[in-house]
Structures are given as structure tokens and as C-alpha cells.
């Protein structure tokens, strides 16, 4: 666990995180100020994928879990995937009126 990511890897990760945040914002079509509609499915998918990748990068590089045991990596990735799955499930259920 002592092997730290290093300045270069941290900077690249930061750049990726910034870019993906902007991708999420544009995918959510923030330009649509006057015509606020539900997102197309591709937008919602893009946002969730960008979020998942960002979470993965924070876990592996910022938290440096890449140097931890596979079990710890698995625990945190599984928890993140579970959270994303719940978010996606709630979103899709509402969108396609699967409950209520």
C-alpha cells in the first residue's frame, strides 16, 4: 500500500475527472433552459457511465486502493456498483412507470 500514485498519475486522473464532470453536465443538456424535458436514454446512460468511471478513478488513484488487496478493491467497487444500480433502477422505474 506504500506505492503512491505519483504526481503525473494524479494530474492525469484530475484532468479525466474534470472532463467527465463536464461531459455529465453537457449530457444532462444544461443548455435546455427553456425546454426542460426528461433526458434521452443515451444522456442518462452517459451520465451514469461517467459517474461510475469517476468513482472508480477516485477509489483507485485518490484513495490509492490500486495498491490495496483485491478484496478491498472488490468491496469498494461492489458498493459503488450497487449504488449506481440503485440509482439506475429508480430512474428507469420512474421513467417507464414500473411502480405505483
Amino acid at each position: 500500500m506504500r506505492a503512491l500514485p505519483g504526481t503525473r498519475r494524479l494530474l492525469i486522473t484530475w484532468g479525466v475527472l474534470m472532463a467527465l464532470t463536464l461531459v455529465s453536465m453537457f449530457s444532462a443538456r444544461l443548455d435546455q433552459t427553456t425546454d426542460w424535458q426528461a433526458l434521452p436514454l443515451w444522456s442518462a446512460t452517459m451520465i451514469l457511465m461517467a459517474t461510475g468511471f469517476k468513482a472508480h478513478r477516485v477509489l483507485m488513484v485518490y484513495l490509492n486502493l490500486r495498491a490495496a488487496t483485491p478484496a478491498w478493491k472488490g468491496v469498494f467497487i461492489a458498493l459503488t456498483l450497487l449504488t449506481l444500480t440503485l440509482i439506475a433502477a429508480g430512474y428507469l422505474a420512474g421513467r417507464f412507470h414500473l411502480v405505483g
Binding site: L39, K54, T83, L84
Partner: peptide, 11 residues
């Protein structure tokens, strides 16, 4: 990172 899309973006 998880909260932002959930509350602000996913609609």
C-alpha cells in the same frame, strides 16, 4: 460524485 447526478442531473 454519486450525489450530484442523482439529485441534479438524472431526470
Amino acid at each position: 460524485i454519486l450525489l450530484y447526478p442523482l439529485i441534479y442531473l438524472m431526470r
